[in-house]
Amino acid sequence: MKKNITQNIGFLMLFLCIIVTLIFLGSIIYFISARGAKVISWEFLTQGPRMGMTQGGVLPAIIGTFYLTLGAILFALPLGLSCAIYLCEYSPKSFVVNIIRISINNLAGVPSVVFGLFGLAVFVNFFKFGVSILSGSFTLGILALPLIISASQEALMAVPQSIREASLSLGATKWGTIKNIVLPTALPGILTGVILSIGRVAGETAPILFTAAAFYTRGYPKSIFSEVMALPYHIYALMTEGTHPDQQKAIAYGCSLILLFMVLLVSGIAIAIRQRQRGINA
């Protein structure tokens, strides 16, 4: 009897923890939606800002965030996946490789403003890409690299040795086995890494602060060497600069809602792809 009571209390505590977590999550979505929804309109989504950021829309920032995120993933996914494949499939399991692995994981903990300064020094100044989509994408890409590498590594390691052996024993080369068996099997896990990185990259402010973002641009970016507006930086700027704090705050909440929605949408699509893949694999 006594044992049963302690057990029930234990379960109750765990349940309460879940409730508290859900309340936090729910209230984030509620507050952002309630405050953001007021300013969301067709005009808000399809036009540029007017009257010193106090009116009009935020389309340039939406587009900017889209380009930056896309650029970052286009850069980080092939590079990160290649690194993960090399580390998991080709490199000998040595001390040096372990050090490399640990270093990559630690890179994930570096504060993002440090990446921003790095991007400024390397891409903006050294390579002379200027404050641009290109510089921002590279900087965000480097931020996403450790996430993509470690998620891909985990996904690759989870592929059973037995099916690699099966493939090799049928006369497949090592690369053929990786391409035809290992990568397709690991794809859902790799996609998870990509989803996480998209969420992270789309919302980052510090890395693009000195490398890509502009408070206001006339019109839309013309090339990868243009500076851009971006949602997270736009929110930051609205809340810290300007002369009409109340109107600006409302717009900032609108931007947050859009950002939240974009990230959820991407995650949703990726989860759907993953589920489909699982369905085939199972």
């Binding site: 059973p160 037995s162 099916i163 052996e165 099966a166 397709p184 099997t185 694999n281």
Partner: peptide, 12 residues
């Protein structure tokens, strides 16, 4: 060719 101890079909 080789057939292994545990059946190891590809997840295909």
């Amino acid at each position: 060719g080789m057939v292994f101890q545990k059946p190891n079909p590809f997840p295909k």
